[in-house]
Nucleic acid binder design. Structure first.
Lengths: 205, 205
DNA sequence: GTCTATATTGCGATAGAC
DNA sequence: GTCTATCGCAATATAGAC
């Protein structure tokens, strides 16, 4: 799996992408200058323009890459769906980890800020991220309903509710810098609280 | 209650604030030029600088004003708390209306985009908005628990869950322009779905 | 390096309030 | 009529894409 030796060109490109990621996701699109990226990556501005053409291209490239990375981390297909409580708990933890990761927080910030300017980026991000997570969870819930484990009018809505509770005010607070990301203990308590409320809310009785 | 006749100075100020609100909340802080505001409000740039000093002051003024307006619309103290289901339903509808109002959506966008640049604004917004809503709902839930109507380990967390479900993916989708705000019917269905899940999740049995 | 965009300021002309 | 807020327009200065 390890590529033997990246060519110098590839290395340059990676370095530029990394520097761009750091600056864009922290400062936002408008506030980021090409100079700031070069300051981090070294080299010459000329380099960025020959690699990426312009600022917008560089931006969309790094956002798409980071969003894809987050999606991969969710690995939602691999979750064992036999026991609903453990399924939801594992799923909740993965979601929470992703929501609290600095890179996805950055993606959220820029996606929200620049949604008018880059609608295509928004669509891609949503469908691969929150949309896919909700859709996959809805499938799991449908199965549980078919087994008679739960009873709920609308599995799609229920999945949305679960994902929204996991995101929660915590995500918003961290997103705007009102507080630092939670420690493992707090995460566990929050996930447990969500799973508990959710399960009681949908379980057949 | 009607003030007889606003002086010319006050009228000018209002017009400037309104134009600034329109442009800032749609375009964001960085993308908004003073020229664009003047184009809308008419008059001279000089005026803005003598009224507000600089762009930052104008920005914080309009954000604070719009956030305060949303808080007032929540009118959370006036909600009758005797029957929990109707309380939650009414509360849910008010929250949803506010979350879907163009001005609060704009405030969300700029607050998230400019959180690093204006941390004080963020704090004020959060404490008066989402924070206060959650806190007030937590009080209502405490009362219900004292009456034995519900049983939940942590009313503060439960309140957070409720508010987060109401906000939900819907808010995110509208926020980033992925879809238009929901019609009354869809709102009602969503609120009902949330209330149902929540009540079943916390009701004593 | 070039060129555009834009925040901020200066100042004489003008229009309402009194 | 005076007086003051407002206007129109130009000038300055800086930043940043390319």
């Amino acid at each position: 799996m390890v590529d033997a030796k990246p060519s110098r060109g590839v290395q340059r490109r990676e370095a530029l992408l990394q520097a761009a990621t750091d600056v864009f996701l922290e400062q936002g699109y408008a506030a980021t200058s090409i100079d700031a990226i070069i300051e981090r990556a070294g080299g010459s501005k000329r380099n960025i323009y020959s690699e990426f053409g312009n600022k917008e291209n560089l931006f969309t490239a790094i956002v798409a890459a980071n969003a894809a990375k987050a999606v991969a981390a969710l690995a939602i297909e691999e979750i064992d769906a036999r026991d609903l409580r453990s399924t939801l708990t594992v799923f909740g933890h993965r979601l929470m980890d992703i929501y609290m990761s600095p890179s996805l927080l950055g993606v959220y910030r820029v996606i929200i800020s620049e949604s008018q300017r880059f609608p295509a980026l928004v669509k891609k991000f949503y469908n691969q991220g929150p949309g896919r997570a909700s859709a996959r969870l809805a499938e799991v819930l449908e199965q549980a309903r078919a087994r008679g484990d739960i009873e709920t009018a609308d599995c799609v809505k229920a999945a949305d509710h679960f994902v929204s509770m996991i995101r929660g005010n915590l995500h918003l607070q961290v997103l705007v810098g009102l507080r630092s990301p939670p420690r493992a203990k707090e995460v566990a308590e929050m996930v447990e609280s969500v799973v508990e409320l959710f399960l009681r809310g949908v379980t057949a009785r």
